[in-house]
Design a protein around this nucleic acid. Structure first.
Lengths: 248, 248
DNA sequence: GTAACTGTTGCATTTTTTTGCCGGAAAAAT
DNA sequence: ATTTTTCCGGCAAAAAAATGCAACAGTTAC
């Protein structure tokens, strides 16, 4: 294993688990702890991790503002993990923006080889760090608040695609009102994505269940799968199951 | 086995496995490791792979190690400052990718209100944090190594725009050979940008002056302004001034 | 034809990088 | 307070890289 590989593996582990132990890393890749310590020092000198006694911490976790504004990170990681298992090699996958989708991008297995189409800058940014997937960005005017492409050009481009899966970062979902949102431009884009996809998967932390916002995106029966961090027999999910949605 | 064959074989291996070992390659094609090392160096100089101790990594792989250490940061900041003064309110500005352009994005004065069009993900990411500018992203397939949109769709979209300024992040510039680069897809995009812009401004740290790479983008007289970190009376810039380029 | 030149390759030598290991210092745990 | 764990600097062996050199094949110029 090359030095750079090792360091990149360490970095992945740190960002995934928020902390690593030198002893674990040493075992996992069968090199001496001294080597690990030296790697940790280099990564720390480059400002990529925070080195502590016995291991290292992710920079975003302990120090930066970012961790605090990725709300309910653990729940989102759970959702991302479930969602990633739906994607098979060779698929065309449409994704919206949002922190849950970013977690999904991070959780994609390294061997996966598929095509991802997105309108979100931060999500695209995650995708390009994956070794095997192909990334298509749908461009147009960029909404500063949502950090995604909005407008007619983007929507007509989306319509030209036939995707296998569409992952929707969901802001509000309710059995009677369906999926709703608050930004008109974003809603237009999401609608186009739903229309052009074979299968629609809504990703929502349980907190978003049974909430409603101003603008309607689609009805609940337009969704094929709903993924939350909850166990799929949780009572909160019963109404959605009854509405014919697949719960994961 | 010819040198070209060998190098294209190496490139295939790198892109397939994300890493190669010099020793393996040496065995596989029965040449000495010295030869392999020389090939690896050439490919690395062309920016096609990342050479590391013991072998090489694919460019997309290495990107997962997000290097925040920008090379020659101070020089680039000087360039960015000079460049930002050319932009006036209401202008349409086309920009390529590259760390120099990112510095330009950071250096934009807060009061500036203009429209920026780009194909680069990291550059767009900077733009959206600016309070007053409008951001248009030209989407298409994303090149993992250059982190910009490449392909026919992007190029035809660029051609539909008439921009006032085009800022070119420049990898190599020479009086007789013009601006050159090493990535074919990126070159196509840059050419389209130059064609459709009123005024073309090349941003280059002095280190890039009088260097040549494989693929030609344009002649020096296609450039209107050249910005480096040097004083505009520096001897290094004389030949370019003589060629009719405005030096800043 | 031949001589000069260029580009490529392998080999020997030197230099650099990487890595594991050791002993003592420092920090954490008990 | 003492025991355990971790850290740090130096050292040495091994691996890899850089360097200089010579052999060789093609090309070009004369």
């Amino acid at each position: 294993m090359l030095k750079k590989e090792r360091q990149s593996f360490i970095l992945r582990q740190v960002n995934l688990h928020n902390k690593v132990l030198s002893s674990d890393l040493s075992q996992e890749m069968s090199v001496s702890e001294d080597t690990i310590r030296r790697d940790l020092n280099e990564l720390s000198d480059d400002g990529k991790i925070i080195k502590v006694h016995g291991g290292a911490l992710s920079k975003s976790f302990h120090l930066s503002i970012r961790s605090s504004n990725v709300y309910s990170l653990d729940e989102k990681k759970t959702i991302a993990h479930k969602a990633s298992q739906l994607i098979k090699d060779g698929m065309f996958v449409l994704t919206t923006g949002g922190t849950t989708i970013i977690e999904l991008a991070k959780a994609l297995p390294a061997e996966l080889s598929a095509t991802f189409i997105t309108v979100s800058l931060p999500v695209a940014y995650e995708y390009i760090h994956h070794p095997n997937i192909e990334v298509i960005f749908i461009g147009d005017k960029i909404s500063k608040s949502a950090q995604i492409s909005i407008g007619g050009e983007a929507i007509s481009k989306i319509r030209q695609i036939k995707a296998d899966l569409c992952f929707l970062g969901t802001n509000a979902i309710d059995v009677t009102s369906g999926i709703t949102d608050s930004d008109w431009d974003v809603v237009q884009v999401k609608r186009a994505m739903i229309e052009t996809s074979e299968k629609v998967i809504s990703l929502a932390i349980s907190e978003k269940l049974n909430t409603i916002q101003r603008i309607k995106i689609c009805d609940v029966n337009d969704i094929d799968v709903l993924i939350t961090e909850l166990d799929n027999h949780d009572d909160l999910l019963k109404p959605y199951e009854k509405a014919g949605i697949n719960i994961l």
